[in-house]
Structure formats: structure tokens, C-alpha cells
Simulated scan of single mutants.
Amino acid sequence: MNISDQLLLFVASFLANWFSALSGGGAGLIQFPMLIFLGLPFGVALATHKVASVALGLGATVRHLNENTLDRRFSLIILGAGLPGVVLGASVILKIPPSYAQFALGVLTMGLGIYSVFKPQLGLEHSPRNREGRALIGGIAGLFFIGFLNGSITSGTGLFLTMWLIHRFGLDYKRAVAYTLILCGLFWNGTGAIVLGMIGKIAWDWMPALLLGSVTGGYLGSHFAITKGNQFIKRAFEIITILIGLKLIIA
């Protein structure tokens, strides 16, 4: 790649991951289509995007760990339930035509934003629930399904995890976004990148600009979200989910 292409990749990656760190997902809205636009085949772009998304998790982790908001037991539940779904989704996505799944994902993603708009108090207070027994099993099933989406579909699946943590487990937006960026960004996306790298191909020469944009965008977006608080993150989540949903539907 020439210098102008690397610069374009950096700017796109920075913006995508800055917005993603604000709302708890959605970096693929800008970053993944940009890779295809610049010439990567779908499968290569998917694997390359997954690797770059791990850098988003790294940048966000550096900032969010200073807040000490993650519970170890609950983190292990999210990882244990979601990672098998990620592996399964990443193993089958390159064999499935993406058009129907993309349309359905667009409708569901836009629905997340609309649902949040009509629930003014959703995610503004931290009130943990459904952490034991049968209620926890239902939550684990949802985490597995979202993990499958994360492994198979590129755009916006972190937003599903953010909303599930709020709706099912009672987290506020700030905590839900922290769990999503760290556990989904680092571990779910890292697992998906490994699986896709084993069965596909990664464009390593595209990585310098993508990784730099992902780390800096993730860190600065997380810092901005933490300083602004739950109401701001809620609005960012609603705007980005609706935009992503429309983009996926009309693509």
C-alpha cells in the first residue's frame, strides 16, 4: 500500500474505533467496508478487520481498567458463554452468503437504538440482576448467541452485547460498554481473528495504520465516554445503532 492509502486507513480506523468506544460497538460500520473498498476480498477483509478490532479492545482496556468497573466472576461468565459462540460463528461465516444475514442484522441493530430511545431510564442506573440460577442460564444463552453473531457478522455485534448486559443483567451504560470493549474487543475478537486467520488470510501489510488507528481511537473514545457519563453514552449508542442498522439494510 502507498502512503496515501495508509493515511486513509488510519483516519477511517481512528474514527470507527472512536465512535465504537463511545457506544460499545460498531467499528465495522466504517472500517470493514473501507477494507473492501480499498481492494481486499470479503474473507480477507473480515479476518483483517477482526485482528484490528483486537487493538480497539487494547486501547479501551488501558483506559477502562483505571476505573476498576469489571467484576471477575461476571467477566468469566461472559467469556465462558460467548467464546464458544465466537468460534462456531467464525468457523461457518466464510461458507454462508452474507446478504440475508446482513439485512436481518440491520433490522435488529436499528431496533436496539429505537428500543433505547423509548426507554428513557434504560442503562442510567446500575442495578445488577439475573446472576444466579435459571435467570443466569437464560442470560448465558443470550451471550452464546451474541458470541456467534460476533464471530460471523462484522458490523455492530458489540452493540448487541452492550444492550444485553444492560437489559438482562442490569448494568448501566458505562459499565456495559467497559465489559464489551474489554471482553468482546480483546477476547471475543481475538478468538475470532485466530479462527479466521487459520481458515482464511490476513492482510498483514495493511495492519500498521489499522492498529494505530484502533488503539488511539479506542483509548480516546473511551476517555471521552468516561468523562461524559451514562446519558451521553446512551445517546451515542442510540445514534450509532440506528445509523448502523440503516447502513446494513440499504447496503
Rank of each mutant, 00 (worst) to 15 (best):
N2V: 11
N2W: 10
S4P: 00
Q6G: 13
L7Y: 06
L8E: 10
L8H: 11
F10P: 01
V11L: 13
S13D: 04
S13W: 01
N17M: 07
A21C: 10
Q31R: 09
Q31F: 08
F32Q: 04
I36P: 01
L38C: 12
L38P: 02
G39R: 10
P41M: 11
F42D: 13
G43W: 08
G43T: 12
V44I: 14
A47I: 03
A47G: 07
K50F: 05
S53G: 12
V54C: 09
A55C: 12
A55E: 03
A55Y: 02
G59Q: 03
A60N: 02
T61P: 01
T61W: 13
T69Y: 08
L70V: 03
D71S: 05
R72S: 11
S75E: 00
S75A: 12
I77D: 05
I78S: 01
P84D: 07
V86K: 07
V86D: 03
V87A: 14
A90R: 07
S91Y: 10
S91L: 11
V92L: 13
I96W: 05
P97S: 11
S99D: 15
Y100I: 15
F103Y: 14
F103A: 15
A104T: 12
M110R: 01
G113F: 01
K119V: 08
G123R: 05
E125D: 14
P128C: 11
P128F: 11
R131Y: 13
R131T: 15
R131K: 12
R131D: 13
E132M: 06
G133H: 07
R134H: 11
R134E: 13
I137H: 06
I137W: 13
G138R: 08
F144N: 08
I146G: 05
G147L: 04
T157C: 10
F160I: 08
F160L: 14
T162L: 05
M163T: 06
W164Q: 01
L165E: 00
R168C: 15
F169A: 01
G170R: 02
L171G: 06
D172Q: 09
K174Y: 06
K174M: 12
A176W: 03
Y179T: 03
L183I: 09
G185C: 03
W188S: 15
T191L: 10
I194E: 05
V195G: 00
V195M: 07
L196E: 14
L196F: 02
I199S: 14
W206M: 14
A209I: 03
A209T: 03
L212T: 11
G217H: 00
L220V: 10
A225N: 02
T227W: 10
Q231N: 13
F232C: 07
R235E: 03
A236H: 05
F237S: 04
I240N: 02
I244R: 00
I244H: 00
I250H: 09
A251K: 02
